[in-house]
């Protein structure tokens, strides 16, 4: 966490309490939204959960000033991300948010560039390989959750750059990339 430069507001206690004045709160939430995005991008965090322990996602608590965001505030911030298209709820209970510090379309580009870089155009790759295979380790694709991968592949399909297909009933899902 040390190498991530925290914005100045992160050391101001009022930022950890939802502000009663509407306009002030709007700015407050905007600042937090930007911070969550850049923080997740820096640490390659894909999913933020409202149930996560503080040590899993320490951003919402600043021990130095002994302040932390309430559940209500955290929930509101994640809703803001979802509303702005920078996040997608995973599941109807709205507890886990896929944080899109890259949009789905951008992820589609990243995946296609990766496939090209690995000479995988016109080749078949299984979804499991994309999720944790050797070629993926240390690449831009590392750690992508299944939900994000599927969404990005759908975008690639729409662009005619890939096809997702099923083999036998027991087989993994396959992807074929095109130039």
């Amino acid at each position: 966490m040390a190498d991530f430069p925290m914005p100045v507001f992160y050391s101001y206690p009022p930022y950890f309490t939802l502000q009663p004045v509407k306009e002030t709160q709007r700015k407050q939430r905007e600042s937090w939204k930007d911070l969550i995005l850049s923080y997740c991008c820096h640490h390659r965090i894909f999913i933020v959960s409202l149930d996560a322990a503080a040590d899993e996602f320490p951003l919402f608590e600043n021990k130095a000033i002994q302040r932390k965001l309430s559940l209500e505030a955290r929930s509101l911030l994640l809703e803001d991300l979802a509303a702005s298209g920078r996040g997608r709820w995973l599941g109807p209970d709205r507890r886990r948010l896929l944080v899109l510090w890259r949009g789905v379309g951008e992820w589609a580009d990243v995946i296609h560039a990766w496939a090209r870089g690995n000479g995988l155009e016109d080749s078949v790759v299984s979804l499991e390989e994309l999720l944790g295979g050797e070629d993926v380790r240390g690449s831009e694709l590392a750690g992508m959750p299944r939900e994000l991968l599927s969404a990005a592949l759908r975008t690639l399909e729409e662009r005619g750059k890939a096809r997702v297909f099923r083999g036998d009933a027991n087989d993994d899902t396959g992807v074929k990339f095109f130039a």
């Binding site: 078949v124 729409e158 662009r159 005619g160 297909f165 083999g167 087989d171 993994d172 095109f178």
Partner: peptide
């Protein structure tokens, strides 16, 4: 858009593709 190339034979999933997927799964 991609649909224009919908008829492109190269973009089909062949039996070879399915066989490879099966093998990778195994």
């Amino acid at each position: 858009m991609g649909n224009i190339f919908g008829g492109d034979k190269k973009r089909e999933i062949t039996d070879v593709d399915r066989a490879i997927l099966s093998l990778k799964t195994q």
